[in-house]
Amino acid sequence: MNLLLARNVDYNYLRLYSLDRIEGVNLTDAHFVLPKDFCAKEYFAEYFGIVLDESVPLQRIVLRADKCHQHYMRTLPLHHSQREIYACDDYADFELALRPTYDFYMKLMSFGNMIKVLEPESLQEKIYK
């Protein structure tokens, strides 16, 4: 996927645009320069995927993977911050630190009943709804 990181002029925040979705481009006199200390690796570190929403706070998330899915979670972590905090024969608990955005919700829901959100309660409720 080819993406473009740009400032959205209507809302004055950074946004990712998928190049295959852009239908047209107009050249304007408006200019934007990233701050010299901007680091893309640091900026994206708190996000799961391509949905960027600075209004979503960074959160500690604890997921429980069932006895079969725990092996998948170990070999293919969901996020670079993921770490295993407990394991037994029946399940394993994993902790992540990220901003849970729409793409993260969709990923969790794709696992069905193989995982369970233990924390935070607000994320449990969103997944349930």
Rank of each mutant, 00 (worst) to 15 (best):
A45E: 09
S122F: 06
F104D: 08
D93K: 11
F104W: 05
N8I: 13
H69D: 00
D90M: 03
V62L: 04
L34C: 09
E125D: 13
T28C: 06
Q70G: 13
L123S: 07
Y102V: 03
D90C: 04
S55M: 06
V9M: 13
A45G: 11
V56F: 01
F32W: 08
L52S: 03
L14G: 08
L98C: 08
F94N: 01
R21V: 00
F111S: 13
R7M: 15
A92H: 05
N12W: 01
C68I: 10
G24I: 06
K67E: 12
D89S: 14
D90P: 05
H79W: 06
D89W: 02
H71A: 11
A97N: 08
G112H: 01
A92L: 01
L108P: 05
R15E: 10
M114D: 09
E46M: 02
F111H: 15
L16E: 02
Y43A: 01
E46Q: 12
F32A: 05
S18D: 08
G49F: 09
L4M: 14
K126Q: 14
Q82A: 04
D90R: 13
D29R: 11
Q59W: 00
N12I: 09
V25N: 08
M106E: 12
T28A: 06
L63W: 07
R7N: 08
K41A: 12
L76V: 14
R60P: 01
R99D: 02
Q70K: 15
R60I: 03
G49L: 04
S55P: 02
V117R: 07
P35D: 06
Y86R: 12
L3H: 07
A87N: 11
Y43K: 02
K107C: 04
F111W: 03
R83N: 08
M109E: 09
R15F: 00
S110T: 03
E95L: 02
T28Y: 03
K67W: 10
Y47N: 06
A40E: 10
V56K: 08
T101K: 05
L96N: 06
D103E: 02
D103R: 10
E23Q: 15
L78E: 07
N113P: 15
A6V: 13
K126T: 14
Y72I: 11
Y86G: 04
L27G: 07
D20C: 11
A92W: 04
R64W: 01
E95W: 00
D66Q: 12
Y102N: 11
Y72D: 00
L34D: 09
D20L: 03
A6E: 01
D90E: 15
M109T: 08
L98R: 10
Q124V: 06
P57Q: 05
E125Y: 05
I50Y: 07
L5T: 13
